[in-house]
Design a protein around this nucleic acid. Structure first.
Lengths: 207, 207, 207, 207
DNA sequence: TATGAATGAGTCTTCATTCAT
DNA sequence: CATGAATGAAGACTCATTCAT
């Protein structure tokens, strides 16, 4: 009846839709998710959903975009703040705080990343895997520009290898959000990953 | 009229269906592929398809299984013939012939691997990525058993890291069949990949 | 435009669907009835039907359930109000009013009973004949409990005979709704039926 | 190769088809029975069935006709041999041998009668119930012609009552072949049935 | 904002039967 | 007698979205 009450109701419905949709997407994937089911689960009239979202796709985006943006932002920032260190070179970032923040992200948006990586087929995000890989790749290139001053041989590394490395990072994200690892296990993994990666990297750019 | 002519005709239809289906699967993915479209493209009556295949899924399998089997066989055999070499350790195999054979496989079944890795959702092969990752993982474990004699520290490598490595191999396959690389480029990539990987590996298992 | 007008329109479609469905069911039986045909005959979009009914079966039930419920209710009530009378013993009921009400039912729901008895195969009502027979049988048993006080020999009547009697009642219903009898003819028949039945019954339970 | 061998093979297949078809009909009813399933179960090529039968319907008839013919023949003969007896009047026949023969028939063709009465929908026999009822009715009329000499009041019995009696006989057949009664139980039932029926009959035609 | 009705194209699969060989 | 391929229509139901109110 009253304006405020209605706003509250609206917000409730908005959230209810998002929640129901997320469940449905997780269960069946974007393509097989049914608007009817979402409406039913959210206790909202089917057609009323279209007052809140123009599209099935938009619902998906509303669920998934924050997670995506935070991730992009993180990756980009890492690269900006990067500095060159013999033993600590990585486009992903390498300092402890960065890792912790990354783990935070993963835990906060586990389901969303799973959606993006494994259940986005049919949505406008169906190329997320590639897009993220490309983003990593781009950041990596920028890194290498810096490195070249110190390691001229970095030039010798092929584009596709950089791409493969980026693809690896994406895969790792996928595996982490798919398997139920606790923070400690993830931390340990990253330690191995960086030791492994730095050693490999040094091998490739050595004189 | 004649027996042989007939067989050819039948064979033609069989192949036509497979070809049309492959196109359709590549274009739209398993789930969205339309039997109607396949029938139309193959110049076959829709219901007649079911004289050749019992299922949409079976068509997919007929297209994709040879590629899958060859890949599994290759991975498995590599591991059987493996020998320990300080500088050449990899579950994928490392000798030149193996690489060449792998490249052969990739070139022969590029589209099929693409289907399996990116367009199998909804089919009985929708878990191919995981299955292949697990296969790599298993093979890797077997390798590590051998290595342990020489490198007792191999024990320290976490299960999840092995898993991540396997996942990387799958990603790499995906990236290769997605991008149009010529043989030489692929060869070069693998050289880098092995240099990188061996160095990293040695780092992890060093005393 | 106006609310009432709308409701009428909706109602019209609902009724149109029911009507078209009833025709189709009568013509082809449940199993062979075509949703397409029903939609066409009702001047409704095929998929729109599913806004009114969730199922082909539900349409059938909507048509047929009132008739079924009234019949069950009638049979049950008859038995409740029953009293023992030497010359008037029947699970179906025997007083004039009851008969008249039964005839009313038959005339009101002639087509529905026809559907239930002859055209329900494939629907959730396909066992109606048996269910109704069993219902009659159960009611008959209850009657016999009462009668035993007066006619101890009622015990001697076999279960299967009771069952056969019940089955007869169902058959009679079927024959009546299948043949076009006027009320008078039906009334006369029931008079014969009861004379016949009571005589037979007395014979079976006589000392 | 040799003629005789082929004949044998042929006969085998013929029987195999009939057997498989009977199973399928019993399980799913005529309408839902699948020629494919029959072919598979009979180990015969689907299209080869059409060398033995022109139709699904013809298979059904081949299975069911002997049972039907024997039944018709029995009913007809009973009536021919009938004689008037105060205490033994029935179109079904009433002497012990007749009953025994009827029971023989029922036991021999139990499945076939079940098919005819309950699973013939969609076949050319789908009106078997009505046809049999009418046959009983016709025979009953002939009886009544004879009786009229002795019981002029027989005239007073309505056509529909005769029809209802016939329908009862059909129902009884249906119930017997549906429930698993042994011969003794069936015999006992018929004894009750005749006592019941004669008493009722006498009541109706009494002066 | 909310609703329920409407749309129209789409899904895969099955069916009994026929045909050419 | 046997086969496998072919046919063409049909099956119920779902889909995301839009419309009128």
């Amino acid at each position: 009846m009253f304006f405020i009450e209605m706003r509250i109701l609206k917000d409730n419905k908005y959230k209810a839709i998002l929640q129901a949709a997320q469940n449905e997407f997780v269960n069946k994937g974007f393509k097989d998710a049914s608007m009817r089911t979402i409406a039913k689960d959210a206790n909202v009239g089917l057609s009323n959903i279209y007052n809140y979202f123009t599209n099935k796709d938009e619902i998906f985006l509303a669920i998934v975009n924050p997670a995506k943006d935070k991730l992009y932002q993180f990756v980009t920032e890492q690269h900006k703040e990067a500095y060159i260190d013999f033993d600590n070179i990585s486009p992903l970032g390498h300092n402890e705080e960065a890792i912790e923040y990354y783990i935070d992200l993963i835990f906060k948006y586990k389901e969303e990343y799973r959606l993006l990586l494994y259940h986005s087929q049919g949505s406008s995000m169906e190329n997320f895997r590639d897009m993220l890989t490309d983003h990593f790749t781009q950041v990596s290139y920028d890194f290498m520009e810096l490195e070249k001053e110190y390691f001229p041989n970095a030039n010798n590394i092929s584009d596709f290898f950089i791409h493969a490395m980026s693809s690896w990072m994406v895969s790792i994200l996928g595996e982490i959000v798919t398997h139920d690892l606790d923070r400690q296990k993830i931390r340990e993994f990253f330690r191995e990953y960086f030791r492994f990666g730095f050693a490999g990297w040094r091998e490739l750019i050595k004189l």
